[in-house]
Amino acid sequence: MKGMAALPVVLAGLIWATPAARADEYRLDVRSVAPDTYAVIGATEDFDSTNGGNVVNCAFVVTAAGVLVVDTGPTARYGAALRRAIRSITPLPVVRVLNTHHHPDHILGNQAFADVGIESAEASIAAQVREGPAFLDNMYRLVLQWAAGTELHPATRAAVAGPFELGGHRFELHLLSGHTGADLALLDVTTGVLFAGDLVFHGRAPTMPHADADAWLASLDRLANLPATTLVPGHGDVTRPASVIAATSDYVRWLRDHLEAAAAAGLDLTDVLAQTPPDRFRPLAVIDAEYRRAVLQWYPAIERRHLYRPRP
């Protein structure tokens, strides 16, 4: 029993050592991408307990009338770090906060901006309320201690599509869909920066849990026609708009057509999972995991359309 007595001492040592290390402090990658405009770029990875869910892009525009924030990140602690980053750049207050859509990595930092009042599309607010509790549980499971203290704060103000002016910047808010049932895209006409949310992925395979391929492709066509010169995607580096919009369309269209063809040819779900996306998509981060996820999410509904009701 002598050896056993040492164990609680060792455990106590571990418990004390952890907070001192502060390995769970977000280090936000804040980049100036245009006049007054900052993008906060996350890793193109899946959520895990090492990256704390810092796998998403948020952004903010510092106008003369205050700061407009696009998306709030995956946890309360991320939201607080984002707010500190804004404070380190400008003493002006945050005056508008948008959630581009209801996915957890874009809304679970809302807590840090609850005093401002958060806007999102009406259907996105409903989805935040409906699915938020499950998202929150899952975020705790995925990123562990990084999520500590995070609560669900759904957006409360229904965003209105159309042009608006804020502190010398002219904006256009576009209400689209396809990545989810309601996706906002914000164009800053003054700087030419398009905040595309998760309608556009750059260098990372798109996520599909609430996607509608046809609606998504139609939304991407609309984004391609906007007078933007710089695009901040929901995931991946800031870039010029045309090629990255086309690349996202290419993947969404390929996946839709691939799964339709597979269902028509009689493939079982396990057959489709065993396939891999073509070489042109290999450079995309987490392509294999996202392909499998999308197949699991989409194929059951598609294959049903290829079965018939025989006479009993």
Binding site: G266, L267, L307, R309
Partner: peptide, 11 residues
């Protein structure tokens, strides 16, 4: 029951 048979093609 919803069903289908494939009589030709790879499957």
């Amino acid at each position: 029951v919803w069903a289908r048979r494939w009589r030709d093609g790879p499957h």
